Amino acid sequence: MPPPGGRDPATGSAPPGYRHDALVYADVDELVTIVAPWLLDGLASGDAALIAAGPRTAGPLRDAVGNHPQVLVAERHALYRARTPTALTAFRRYAEEHAPPGRRLRVVGETDYGTTPADWREWQAYESVINTALGPWPLWGLCVFDAALPAPILDSVGRTHPQLVTAAGRATNPDVVDPATYLGSLPVPDEPLEATPPALADDDISDYAGVRHAVRGLLGTIDGPADLLEDFLMAVDEMTSNAVRHGAPPAGLRLWTAPGRLVATIRDSGSGLEDPFAGYGPAHGADLSAGGMGLWLARQLCDHVAIRRDAHGVSVRLSTSWS
């Protein structure tokens, strides 16, 4: 197929760009009644389809559209409980591999928002970011939301989806918020560990190599999955390096530990990281040799990444948990 935004060499037509719709459903019967005809209409017109929903909804939807060769079914957690940049990459790959030339891949997506406000924030941000990040890709996403979800999640649906779908049809959403504005408005949840003494602190880093060695030594004492601890070490190292090399001094690091949980805050005195989409892709696109990968890597290596600004500078909070 042609690249995103390119033209099909056989027909000369440009593939359509991204559409992002939302449906809030009361029960599975309502979901199937609205979504199945949308999928079948797409298949009849030459689109392909992907169902990435929870088991309670994926099965009935698959049954409603039959054993059609253009319908893919993905395990929801493989997409939505991975980190947000990973989900973006996965949907781009699905579009590149499965959208027919000049047509779209229609996606029924049921995001797993997790169980905590920090989880919710990550995926609320994602739902807004994809309006920009997936713009050139031939995808038509219909995000479906159980009406029993927590109120903050349902409120965010109306702020992040340009079109809303009901039994009456598809309509423009007048309440959608520009992604950059929306991302800037999302509050950062409190982290209780930050109110306790840190296990490691250096508020004016002068010996970056020494700090890195101290972090590695501390994490080496933690009883947790080795790969997760190594990921967290890499994320802390990347963000501390960025603060020391590119931020305004002084740069500092604080790290907290608790059973099954790690939190680190890296701060500098500058005003960097002003791009609201920072970290949702490499800063220089496909040219990974150009650098600018620190925040992008951190978002893939940690459960939660929160950027905060105040009169003293900018900070990045990283957190990871395990059971």
Rank of each mutant, 00 (worst) to 15 (best):
D231V: 02
R254M: 07
S241F: 14
S269W: 08
E274Y: 13
L255T: 04
P249E: 14
F232R: 04
D237L: 08
L255F: 12
T240D: 06
R267N: 05
P250T: 09
R245Y: 11
P282D: 06
M234P: 00
M239T: 09
Y280R: 09
P249I: 08
P259G: 11
M239A: 01
R261K: 10
G270Q: 12
V244F: 15
H284V: 02
A248R: 15
G281P: 09
A283T: 10
G281K: 00
A251G: 10
P259H: 13
G252V: 03
G270M: 12
S269T: 15
A248M: 14
M234H: 13
P259I: 09
A235S: 13
A278D: 12
V244E: 00
G252C: 12
L253V: 05
G260V: 07
G281Q: 15
D268M: 13
R267H: 14
Y280K: 04
P250Q: 04
A251Y: 03
G260A: 05
A283F: 11
R254D: 03
L255K: 11
S269A: 15
V263E: 00
G260I: 06
D237W: 03
F232T: 04
G279I: 04
A248D: 14
G279E: 06
A251M: 05
V263R: 01
N242R: 14
L273D: 06
E238I: 02
L253G: 01
I266C: 13
G252W: 05
G252L: 09
G285D: 07
L253D: 06
E274A: 14
I266G: 12
A248V: 15
P249W: 11
M234S: 13
S271R: 15
H246P: 01
G279W: 06
R267W: 02
A248F: 12
R267V: 13
E238Q: 06
I266E: 12
A283H: 08
W256N: 04
E238G: 00
V236K: 00
D237K: 04
A251L: 07
A258I: 02
F277G: 04
A243D: 01
A248W: 10
